[in-house]
């Protein structure tokens, strides 16, 4: 089976292990992820902070290219890209005038027919039904599933899981043999776009998240967003200095955890690329 695939910039660079694990898990289930040809950046936080039209035109180009390529379902592992693509689809369907402006800027046909899936939806729809027989090494750890902001909010537009105490990742991890813990910071913000420009804020916000996970005995944090990952993993020094102690809980993409459970090797899943050693 073939599904459309939009990796986004992070997955080609600082979060390439996310792409590696997504592709490896898909392959293990005979799913071919077909990358959109000549895709561009979605514009991320910068675009919608600075220029509304740009923030819609960039994702619209991506969706148009997917349409052109004949893709009906598009897997978007990065939560930020997923959010931008979904918001764009919503805004353009609600506002025909805006759609005209944006498609004019793009010079590409756009109908809004592509179905955008985040990684949890993709796993739930295509992997989980066949997972049971494939688990060879259950991910037998206490895990804190961390959803962040952009996977679940705003619910009015994304219509995915629930905004408070979401459960979809917990349910997946349970099936992979993990014990998801009940904790309080599932959807608190990690600091995301301020990672470089205001690292101290990220230390505080991600520190609170890490602190609660630690207090409740999490052995790993499971994420589905490259920004959440880079803040919780690469910014661990800032986190530790906020917490005043050294916390070495590893942060895994959900596809890495599932990959381990089905016996894929650590290197294929890119675990060696993490800043905080993946000891689980």
């Amino acid at each position: 089976m073939t599904l459309g695939f939009y990796p986004g910039c992070s997955l080609k660079g600082s979060s390439r292990e996310y792409a590696e694990s997504v592709l490896a898990v898909a392959e293990a289930f005979d799913i071919h992820l077909e990358e959109i040809k000549d895709w561009n950046c979605c514009g991320a936080t910068a675009a919608h902070n600075m220029n509304k039209e740009l923030s819609l035109a960039l994702p619209a180009r991506i969706l148009s290219l997917a349409e052109k390529q004949g893709l009906t379902e598009l897997v978007v592992p990065c939560a930020a890209c997923y959010s931008r693509l979904t918001v764009t689809k919503h805004e353009l369907s609600e506002n025909p005038a805006l759609k005209a402006v944006v498609t004019e800027a793009n010079d590409l046909a756009y109908t809004g027919s592509v179905n955008v899936l985040n990684i949890v939806q993709m796993l739930d729809k295509y992997i989980i039904p066949n997972l049971e027989g494939k688990v060879v090494k259950p991910f037998d750890h206490k895990v804190a599933c961390y959803y962040g902001c952009l996977l679940v909010r705003p619910h009015e537009i994304l219509k995915f899981d629930r905004e408070e105490d979401p459960q979809s990742m917990d349910a997946l991890m349970l099936k992979a043999g993990a014990t998801p813990i009940d904790w309080a910071f599932k959807t608190e913000c990690c600091g995301a776009g301020l990672s470089v420009s205001r690292t101290s804020s990220v230390g505080r916000l991600s520190g609170k998240i890490m602190g609660d996970a630690k207090d409740r005995g999490a052995e790993a944090i499971i994420v589905a967003c490259p920004m959440c990952h880079s803040n919780l993993d690469m910014r661990r020094d800032a986190i530790n200095s906020y917490l005043g102690e050294k916390v070495d809980i590893p942060v895994l993409y959900i596809t890495q955890a599932i990959g381990l459970a089905i016996g894929l090797d650590r290197k294929t899943l890119g675990l060696q690329r993490h800043f905080v050693k993946v000891s689980v």
């Binding site: 660079g13 950046c41 514009g43 910068a46 470089v196 420009s197």
Partner: peptide
């Protein structure tokens, strides 16, 4: 700094189409 980061980000994709970290 926040604005500079956004601008640098957008400039990057303006010239290459994708983010060049």
């Amino acid at each position: 700094e926040i604005i500079a980061f956004h601008k640098s980000f957008l400039d990057s994709i303006k010239y290459t189409g994708r983010l060049y970290e």
